[in-house]
């Protein structure tokens, strides 16, 4: 069996051009490492049989049919979407930063694509909202396989230019989504943490399940610069020439304060908060999602 796991490394995966392929690689790679197929989100009403394929839960093999035909058939049930997931991806300019070749946006893209793939594979519905200081595109959730292509297409045409306004966008999203669903926020959350939390709270208030994938670049977390550096702010935040060595402590403290505040806010509102370093393996996002999915059932 091909070792799919290597495709969980964002750097390797970033070399793959097609987003649909990326998503498949991530998910297949992830699943091949699991003992149990994730595809068990089936409804109780039987619909038809389907030939067994690897990864299917053997619990669903219809042994009667096997006895008759000597073939493995899976019992399929009436499709019933019980989860609607909204992938809310930040496409602001700040997401375009990537010190290591993989920008936060690339990473976020991959996370969104992989999640979408996984969700639709599980017969759930996935929608996509992309925003910067406002919602830029909104693909409503569907569970058709063909919807996946539309999702990938939308994800593929990004041109980040604008500043972020996470809080406002989340408010907007909360107001837009009527039905209770799972909201997956993929962003660097570079905004006023209070406003971000207010937005998130709004979502929770609307009884949505919320996962926050907080994407940070490795450089943003460790500030590894040594030489005198001019930091050109993205999102028109001005330039700063500093000796990074002397400022590192202060900076890291700011970042850590910010993160802690967000995290604490999330925990208080029962929001799953997952910090994703752009160099961390992509399966973390999937695992978090699946854990949440399992919990929300």
């Amino acid at each position: 069996m091909e070792d799919y796991r290597k495709y969980l490394d964002p750097k390797t995966l970033n070399k793959v051009g097609r987003l649909d392929l990326k998503a498949r690689l991530i998910v297949e790679g992830y699943i091949s490492g699991l003992h149990k197929s994730p595809y068990h989100g089936f409804s109780v009403e039987f619909a038809e049989h389907r030939e067994y394929s690897p990864g299917d839960d053997i619990r669903h093999i219809d042994w009667k049919v096997f006895g008759r035909t000597d073939r493995y058939y899976i019992k399929q049930y009436e499709e019933e979407t019980n989860l609607v997931a909204h992938l809310v991806l930040d496409v602001s300019e700040s997401m375009n930063f990537g010190d290591d070749g993989v920008s936060k946006l690339n990473y976020g893209q991959m996370v969104a694509a992989a999640l979408a793939y996984l969700i639709i594979q599980q017969q759930d519905a996935a929608g996509l909202i992309m925003f910067d200081d406002a919602v830029r595109s909104n693909l409503p959730p569907r569970s058709h396989g063909s919807h996946l292509q539309a999702l990938f297409h939308t994800l593929g045409k990004l041109a980040p230019k604008q500043k972020t306004d996470v809080g406002r966008v989340l408010d907007e999203v909360a107001q837009t989504i009527q039905k209770r669903c799972l909201v997956v926020v993929i962003s660097d959350l570079f905004d006023d943490p209070d406003r971000v939390l207010a937005g998130l709270r709004h979502l929770v208030h609307r009884r949505h399940d919320v996962i926050v994938f907080h994407i940070m670049d490795d450089a943003e977390l460790t500030f590894p610069f040594e030489r005198m550096t001019r930091f050109e702010g993205l999102e028109a935040s001005g330039d700063l020439v500093v000796n990074p060595r002397s400022l590192r402590d202060g900076y890291l403290k700011e970042v850590s304060d910010f993160r802690r505040k967000i995290e604490r806010g999330c925990t208080a509102n029962r929001i799953d908060y997952v910090l994703l370093n752009t160099s961390t393996s992509l399966d973390v996002a999937l695992s978090s999602y699946l854990a949440k999915r399992a919990g929300s059932r």
Partner: peptide
């Protein structure tokens, strides 16, 4: 050192600015 610096496009400018 003050004159010779490299340039980095930087997203987390707000934190940097605050620290500065």
């Amino acid at each position: 050192n003050r004159r010779r610096y490299r340039t980095v496009r930087w997203a987390a400018q707000d934190f940097l600015r605050a620290a500065f």
